[in-house]
């Protein structure tokens, strides 16, 4: 469902959703549904539903469930209850509950990115031939995409472990040029993607039959504008985990 929404509507909807949550929070004294949504029962139902939904995905597998309407609605419900708790944590901040407050905020943000930002992510594969300059990549459904930069493959290196002959390293040396920064030489290897503007380039494949002498190298090009929100959200969740485990047992508290 959410895959259909893209910029600018994704941002508009996300902002409207957060605005709606603030309204629900403000009205929670006067409206029984709003009160219920920010209460313990809905919190348990939403976590339980997300638990069962992921359990089913774990048992069945496949790519269909994460994109399905019911799964998205479960995540939306979870983000609603967590979001309302995050707003309350910020409104009535208590130092003893900082671990829970950080967890609520971080998980709320990452769920927003997951629900509303999905459709804005672009993935395309660029097959580079040695010494050929190209700016064209192909998506998984075969659509051609023109990238805002030019790439020239200068060298591809593959190393193996001596004993087991299993791969040790794949590395491509490329020339990248975009309008702003001119031409530069970059090395791209697994775990070390290159960044050009809002795109990240990952070492993806090479010509398996040729191995070390592979004259081509394939790069996965990813543009995920919502990552600028996902990254801080992940660090907030990381921090919340650390705070929760360091403060466990310090005082009697309510989760």
């Amino acid at each position: 469902m959410a895959t259909g929404i893209s910029y600018p509507w994704s941002v508009v909807l996300a902002l409207l959703y957060v605005y709606l949550l603030v309204m629900i929070y403000v009205l929670s004294d006067r409206c029984s549904v709003c009160k219920w949504l920010s209460g313990r029962t809905s919190c348990l139902i939403s976590i339980g539903a997300a638990f069962l939904g992921s359990l089913m995905l774990g048992l069945v597998g496949g790519d269909a469930i994460p994109d399905s309407l019911w799964f998205t609605l479960i995540l939306l419900f979870l983000s609603t209850t967590i979001g309302l708790n995050a707003i309350r944590d910020i409104h009535h901040f208590r130092s003893a509950r900082k671990g829970a407050a950080l967890a609520h905020l971080g998980i709320f943000l990452i769920l927003i990115v997951g629900i509303f930002g999905k459709g804005d992510k672009q993935v395309a594969y660029l097959m580079a031939q040695k010494d050929v300059t190209t700016a064209t990549a192909v998506t998984s459904d075969g659509t051609r995409v023109t990238l805002p930069f030019m790439l020239t493959l200068k060298d591809f290196v593959m190393e193996e472990y001596e004993m087991s002959h299993t791969p040790k390293k794949y590395m491509s040396t490329v020339h990248l040029s975009d309008g702003k920064r001119g031409m530069r030489t970059v090395e791209i290897e697994v775990n070390h993607p290159a960044r050009v503007g809002s795109w990240r380039l990952y070492q993806y494949k090479y010509d398996l039959s040729r191995g070390e002498d592979s004259p081509v190298s394939v790069f996965e090009c990813v543009r995920d504008p919502w990552y600028c929100l996902a990254a801080p959200a992940l660090w907030i969740i990381l921090l919340s985990g650390a705070v929760v485990l360091f403060t466990a047992g310090s005082k009697k508290k309510r989760v």
């Binding site: 993935v123 070390h192 993607p193 990240r200 992940l234 990381l238 985990g241 929760v244 485990l245």
Partner: peptide, 25 residues
Amino acid sequence: RIGWGFLTLGMVMGALWAKQAWGDY
């Protein structure tokens, strides 16, 4: 709480790593 805190750390570290390695967290 301690176990959950460590699970959270492990999961997020995995996510940040996955973004570096495979392009998605």
